[in-house]
């Protein structure tokens, strides 16, 4: 082993160190998770804390199994549908609005104070209004998700557009470009990295919107299960649903990351 180490070049040593560091971090991450779950289980098993109040990993697993036999897939499906729809609609509409605002300075200046105020407004305050307009159904939840995401989307995407180098716009103008060409040849491709970070923020926000919406109205979905579980003091149900929620949110986040990787491979944006 020692002899082997001597024959390695500095480069190989360096690469090996990177690899070792990477596995070290991963091992610690896993250890933290195992320790947390283990301690939780242990403290409820020994009776330090009451599993009625904090549930426990084994009870969560059992609840999982029970839910699996029942209609958990329906609840997951509904919540996922609401979240993804709200996410997609607010992203598409947000980008379109941002393009319009970029296009017209008048529109931009008129809209600015409204955007600022709407951004500061806690969207949950609109709950009753949403229920009256959209009805106490899935539409209300999607609308809540939409409202939470849309303003942030518009503002961040527009900021990205506006941060484009004036010199590049100047260059295109000197070539005789129309405004539409400046948009398609410069502003949009330039904004792709910013757009992706907006998507990542929106993943988080759309889950906030969906669960908040389900707290307000709903007869199904993970948010509904959590509320219901809380009301009837079934902490196991609350915890199990929360764990599923974590997994789904992670899944959606990593899908966006995957998109990012695919795009980066296609474009290889350097520096």
């Amino acid at each position: 082993m020692k002899k082997n180490k001597k024959t390695l070049s500095p480069r190989q040593l360096y690469l090996r160190k990177i690899k070792l560091d990477k596995s070290k971090i991963l091992i610690i991450q896993i250890a933290v998770l195992v320790a947390f779950v283990g301690l939780w289980e242990l403290s409820t098993a020994v009776g330090w804390v009451d599993s009625f109040f904090v549930s426990s990993p084994s009870r969560i697993v059992r609840t999982f199994a029970d839910l699996w036999k029942q209609d958990i897939m329906k609840h997951i499906g509904i919540t996922l549908l609401e979240c993804v729809l709200g996410f997609l609609i607010s992203t598409v509409v947000g980008v379109i609005v941002a393009i319009l605002l970029w296009w017209s300075e008048t529109f931009r200046r008129v809209a600015e104070p409204y955007l600022v105020v709407l951004n500061a407004l806690p969207k949950i305050a609109l709950g009753p209004v949403i229920i009256i307009w959209a009805g106490a159904n899935m539409n209300a939840i999607i609308m809540m998700t939409f409202l939470i995401c849309i303003i942030v989307t518009v503002m961040s995407v527009l900021n990205g557009f506006m941060s484009c180098d004036k010199g590049k716009i100047f260059l295109l103008e000197s070539m005789g470009a129309t405004k539409f060409q400046i948009l398609t040849k410069l502003i949009l491709p330039y904004s792709v990295p910013n757009f992706i970070s907006v998507l990542k923020i929106n993943v988080g926000l759309s889950w906030v919107g969906t669960i908040m919406g389900e707290y307000l109205v709903s007869g199904a979905g993970l948010g509904y299960l959590i509320i219901y579980g809380g009301q009837v003091f079934k902490l196991d149900l609350v915890m199990a649903s929360t764990v599923i929620l974590c997994l789904l949110a992670a899944l959606m986040y990593f899908s966006v990351c995957l998109c990012e990787k695919l795009i980066a491979r296609k474009r290889r944006t350097s520096k």
Binding site: F170, L171, Y190, K271
Partner: peptide, 20 residues
């Protein structure tokens, strides 16, 4: 107004598009 194709303007910084 815009001349477009008659004039080629080269700016101080190269302004190459990094994604192309």
């Amino acid at each position: 107004g815009k001349t477009g194709c008659d004039v080629g303007y080269m700016l101080q910084r190269d302004q190459l598009f990094e994604w192309r």
